[in-house]
Structures are given as C-alpha cells and as structure tokens.
Design a protein around this nucleic acid. Structure first.
Length: 601
DNA sequence: GAACAACGCACC
DNA sequence: AAACGGTGCGTTGTTC
C-alpha cells in the first residue's frame, strides 16, 4: 500500500526504467506559490501504483513516514528525457515538485489540457469527468474515488477563508488531516486512472490523426505543441510578475474612499442604503421617474449603458461606486492577497480553459486587467519589472481580422494592408463607410452577429444595417463565402478543422454559426501557443523571460543586457503564422517603469 | 447556512 | 432553431 523506507530506493530504481508514468501530489492547500506544501506523492506505472508518504501520522509506523530529505531522490524518476509523464492539471503538480527542487525533464502530458484538444464540447474537464467519459467510451469499469471529499465533509476538515474587504468566503480543505488509510487508496486511484486516461488519450490522438483529410495538418503536431506548452506556461507562471505592493495599498485606500463617498452621496440623496442590484435600484430610479429595463429573463437590468443615458442624480453615483468597487475588489486587493513571498503574483494560465483553444487565466486574471482606465491609480501600473529588467510587450496587430482575410483570400484588401494600410481603414474605403462602422462590421462577421445586433453596434436602423452588410459582402465576397462554407460544413459534418489542425466540434447545428469564430479565434490561439514554445526554446540560457500572455500579446521581462533580442522575439511571433498571402504583423512596446506605462519603443 | 443562479463588467 | 465569439470574478438574491 505505502512505500516503506526499506524498499524506497528499489522502487525508485524500478520507476526509472519506465517510459510512461502518471503522477499526482497531495498537498496541504491549493497555492503552490504561497503556503501550500506537498505531503505525499503518487507515481503510477502501467501495472503498479506507488504511494510515497512524507506526513508523520500519529499511529503510522515510522517505516512508512519517509524523511522529507528523500524527496530530492525523485529527480532520477522525473529526469528521464525520453519518458512521458501524465498528470491531470499538470502545472500544479510541476509547481509543487519544483518547490522541492524536482524538475520534470521528460515530456509532460497534462490530461486536462489534452482532453480539451481531443474534444471541445464537454462542460467539465475535471479528472472525474474525463475518467467517467473514458469508462463510457471504452465500456470499462473505472472511476474516481470520492472517499476523501466525503471524509472531509463528514468530519468538517475544512474552514472558511475570508479575504479582507470582500463579501464572499472560500472553502479551504485540509487534506493533510485526512487519515492515511483513507488518503492513500484515494490517491493511488487518482494515479491509476490518470495513467489510464493518458494512455487512452494517446490512442485517441492516433485515431483522430488517421481520420484527418490528407491536405490538413495532423492533430499530432498540435498535440505535441500542447504538451510542450504545459512546460512553457509552467515556467512562465513560476517566474511570475512583480507587484508594487505599496502602490496597490495606496490604490486600495483611494478606491475605497471613492466607494464610500458614493455610498454616502447615495444615502443623503435618496435616504436609502446603496445596494447595487437591479431589484434595489429599480425603485430608486422609479422615484426619479425613470423606468429600468428588464433582462432577457425578466429581471430589472441596470447596466452601465442605462446609467450613462439616464439623467438621474444617482446615475453617476452608481457608476462611480461600481468602478471603484470593481477596481479595489477584483484587482488591487486580489493582487495584494495573491502576492507570494517573492513579491510576485503567479497566475494560473488554464491551458484547457476554453472551447476555442485559447488559454484562460485565474488567480488573478490579468487577462482582464483594465487597459485604458482613468484616475490616479491605473491597474496595470501595479505590475513592475524587476531590477535590471524592463518590460517588453509585443502584440499582433489586428490579428483576428488579418487571419479572417487571409483565410478568405480577400486579395484586394490584402494588397492594401500589405502596403501598410490599417485593416479597418482599408475596409472602410472599400465599402464606403467610416472606419468605425467598418470595424463594427468586421467585428460582427468575426462573431457571427445577426442583423439586429449589427444595427445595435452601428447605431442605425435595421434597414441601414442590412444595406451596409450587403455592401460589405458585395465588396468582400470571399469573406461571405468563407463564413457560409464554414457554417455549412459545421452543420453537415458536425465539426471543422482550423489551420493548425485543431478540430472544433458542433454537435448541435443551432450553434454552427459560431464555427467561423472558432476557426479564427482558435487558429490565432494556436499561433500564439506555437510562438510561445519557440520563444521558450529561444530564451534558454538567457536572462530574459516570458511573464504573461494576453491572447495576442506577450509580456516579457527583458534583461538590460539583452535589449538586442527584442526584434528576434518579434520575428519569432510573426513567423509562427504561416500565411496564405497576408503575414502577421507584431508591434513591440516597452517600459522600464510598469505594465501600465508600456508605449511604442 | 450553503449552494446556485443571475447579473454586470473587466479583457481579447 | 436562433443570430455577438471567448473568458474570470465580484455581489445580490433565491432556493433547498
């Protein structure tokens, strides 16, 4: 059941001979860059599962409490460059191992990320859900063990965690308090099913590859890229981005004061407490003679759009309150809360986070950090380069529009853009509208908007929207054709492939209108992922490093002595895309002060 | 009291 | 059958 001290080295020697291993760590918490610590490790082979315990349980024979110093011995197990290592949400395990000085040198196969690549239509990609689907698909009996969750609930081995200044609490589960005779079989099962899941996924990729039409890129290259990306993202997360804590504290004070002033202004004006909900605000606006519209589900809806056009004395107050509380709760206070002992935040870039192939970001979600915000405390100024480094932030110009035109092969427009013209300006001149209107129609195409939404975006009547869209499609017939063909293929076949070979499934024909967007958004995501892997290679033995990815932008910390690599980074990003005729254009910005200060170099 | 739904809003 | 794609996160209100 548990690996004892006597057999420890023998088991490790056995593990080093394996070409495929699954692993999983059990930890005191879920914050690898703050206080969480590994207390056990499961390693599974095709035939065996080994549980290594480092926690001194009261009634456990010391033979089965391995000394923590022995953790370093695991480097030989994870040091095989030819082996494949399966783990579910692997970046978490990599981070916990890294804390102990263990580096996985072989191929990391994150079964969560790879599950997303194999199929994008599931609601959840937890280990539990993935294994349940495996059982169904292969008609075998295999499932996750839920005993530990059950035990934690039964014996209340958890506590609420209240983040200062916030309304909501979070549950902290104490896995280290679960008895070892409950923990070990549970963890062993996780190791076993991760192994089965990983091997099954490898088979599934081969199967999918055999069904790909010969003129399209194989899914296998994309799968390799995703596997590689797990390590690229992990290294990026581990570096983290430094936070100016004192600045955040100042910002919190400032925004709290703004929110408080809004609250008291509201009270003195209306005589009521400010409760920011549609239900509560409906009555207040009624007092001033304004009717609040309803949402689709029939509930009162007080949006910023409503507040901006409603000349009541409380409109501005609610806007200020919302802006201030959002900035302080979602951003500044989160940054301070999540900052590690190294003074940096280490985001979690979820590799299997989206249906299209993009990565998403949590804890904190820097991909939603305000960009054009006003006032004395800009959010992105909280992110600062470390001493002797400066920020370099290259981004792809109008990436999705360019890819859409390249996909469609809209040559007349492509020639103008190649000559240096702005994408939306070129569109505007072609269809005879303002740049702003052209941009809206481009947007609408990209997202599959209907005519009503387009009219909304353009601020015109349905009739005018129809006319403008008609003009757009008559001047850009290949874009229209591209959209039609992709939707049609998705409807008839149930799936489409993007240019990198990613398969996007649309089992419900009602949603086939999304297919062109998936190809473009997901295709762009795959380009950026490829670029990131190439950059990760390029940066080996250099001091500069990647810090963040914001879909079409990458934030680097470049060492002062390596300023010359900036053009090379841009070149790698541009060349990650193989155009039919319109190449990508990457523009670099930089700052030695903060992310909020990056500007054209 | 806890879980969940709904809403609003930050980004690409 | 329905027509704005993809996220994460905060609060409020409802439900069990």
């Amino acid at each position: 059941m548990l690996v004892g001290r006597a057999e420890f080295l023998g088991v490790l020697a056995r593990l080093t001979t394996e070409s495929r291993l699954a692993f999983d760590v059990e930890t005191t918490g879920l914050r690898p860059y703050q206080d969480s610590q590994l207390f056990s490790l499961v390693v599974a082979t095709q035939s065996d599962v080994f549980y290594f315990n480092f926690l001194p349980y009261e009634d456990l024979d010391l033979e089965y409490v391995l000394p923590r110093e022995w953790l370093s011995e695991f480097q030989v197990v994870f040091g095989n460059r030819d082996a494949v290592y399966f783990a579910h949400n692997a970046k978490f395990d990599l981070a916990m191992l890294s804390r102990e000085g263990i580096e996985v040198l072989g191929t990391v196969h994150c079964t969560e990320a790879m599950a997303r690549l194999l199929g994008n239509v599931e609601l959840t990609y937890t280990l539990d859900a993935c294994v349940t689907r495996l059982a169904l698909a292969t008609n075998t009996v295999i499932s996750k063990d839920h005993t530990v969750e059950w035990y934690i609930n039964k014996y209340d081995l958890w506590a609420w965690e209240q983040e200062p200044g916030k309304a909501a609490r979070k549950k902290n589960k104490f896995f280290a308090k679960v008895p070892v005779d409950i923990m070990a079989p549970y963890a062993r099962r996780d190791g076993e099913i991760t192994m089965r899941l990983g091997e099954w996924q490898e088979d599934e990729f081969l199967l999918q590859a055999s069904t790909v039409p010969p003129n399209l890129p194989s899914i296998l290259a994309l799968a390799d890229n995703e596997r590689r990306l797990t390590k690229t993202l992990f290294k990026m997360e581990r570096v983290g981005v430094a936070i100016d804590k004192a600045y955040c504290e100042e910002a919190i004070k400032y925004e709290e004061a703004r929110a408080e002033k809004a609250t008291s202004d509201f009270k003195s004006l209306t005589g009521q407490d400010l409760v920011d909900s549609g239900k509560a605000l409906k009555g207040v606006f009624a007092q001033y003679g304004f009717e609040v519209p309803n949402t689709e589900k029939g509930n009162p809806s007080v949006t910023d759009e409503f507040l901006a056009r409603t000349p009541s004395p409380v409109s501005q107050i609610v806007q200020t309150y919302r802006d201030a509380t959002k900035r302080v709760n979602t951003y500044f206070r989160s940054f301070v809360w999540l900052v590690g002992a190294d003074g940096a935040v280490h985001c979690n870039f979820r590799q299997g986070g989206t249906a299209t192939g993009r990565v998403s970001c949590t804890n904190p979600n820097i991909q939603s950090a305000p960009k054009e915000d006003e006032g004395p405390f800009k959010v992105r100024r909280a992110f600062i380069p470390r001493p002797n480094f400066f920020f370099f932030a290259p981004d792809y110009s109008a990436m999705e529009y360019r890819v859409m035109l390249d996909y469609a092969g809209e040559d007349a427009l492509i020639e103008r853009i190649k000559a240096g013209m702005d994408v939306h300006q070129a569109t505007a001149e072609l269809i005879g509208t303002s740049r702003k209107q052209a941009k809206s129609v481009n947007f609408a195409c990209l997202y599959g908007a209907g005519i009503e939404k387009l009219a909304d975006m353009l601020g015109t009547s349905l009739k005018d929207a129809r006319r403008i869209r008609g003009e757009y499609f008559s001047k850009l017939p290949r874009v229209q054709n591209f959209i039609k063909q992709v939707v049609r293929t998705a409807e008839l076949r149930g799936y489409v492939y993007n240019r990198m070979g990613r398969r996007c499934a649309f089992p419900d024909p009602r949603f086939s209108y999304k297919a062109p967007n998936y190809l473009i958004q997901g295709g762009c995501a795959d380009v950026v992922k490829l670029a990131m892997n190439r950059i990760d290679d390029f940066l080996i033995n250099r001091k500069s490093r990647m810090l963040l990815q914001i879909h079409d932008e990458i934030l680097f910390e470049v060492h002062e002595s390596e300023r010359h690599i900036c053009p090379e980074l841009i070149a790698i990003m541009e060349q990650a895309y193989t155009p039919k005729s319109l190449p990508m254009q990457v523009v670099g910005k930089e700052s030695g002060v903060s992310w909020g200060d990056v500007a054209d170099a």
